[in-house]
């Protein structure tokens, strides 16, 4: 799975519902009817910051991700992008 570009901008897909859980969060996409999960709270924090952050990297840093762990989180976001849980921000409305 590919990492996303740290300088790209993203948002949660409008058809995705997020439910925080003690271990992280569950995500459900009403368009693809797929369930995903975030295995830690930090990733949830990152995802929630995406829409307002100037870049994916900034969202990670703001959520307290250490520089050394950045690649892990960018890969996780890559997986979410592949399953359309998150969408490129400028195309957010068009992504189905």
């Amino acid at each position: 799975m590919a990492s996303i570009d740290p300088d790209s901008t993203w948002t949660l897909h409008p058809q995705v519902s997020v439910r925080p859980e003690p271990f992280g969060a569950l995500l459900y996409h009403f368009g693809t009817r797929r369930l995903s999960f975030l295995k830690d709270r930090t990733l949830l924090d990152v995802v929630e910051r995406l829409a307002d952050a100037p870049s994916a990297r900034a969202a990670c840093i703001d959520a307290g991700v250490a520089e050394t762990h950045l690649p892990t989180y960018l890969r996780a976001l890559g997986t979410l992008a592949e399953s359309r849980m998150i969408a490129p921000r400028d195309a957010g409305e068009r992504a189905a």
């Binding site: 859980e21 369930l35 997986t79």
Partner: peptide, 28 residues
């Protein structure tokens, strides 16, 4: 949950089924 479960791969001390075994705050 018929929805195929996909893992986003951040640090993972436990498998998801281990969390599921303990129950969730609400059903999926």
């Amino acid at each position: 949950t018929d929805a195929p479960v996909q893992a986003a791969p951040p640090p993972a001390p436990k498998r998801l089924v281990d969390h599921f075994e303990l129950g969730l705050d609400a059903p999926i």
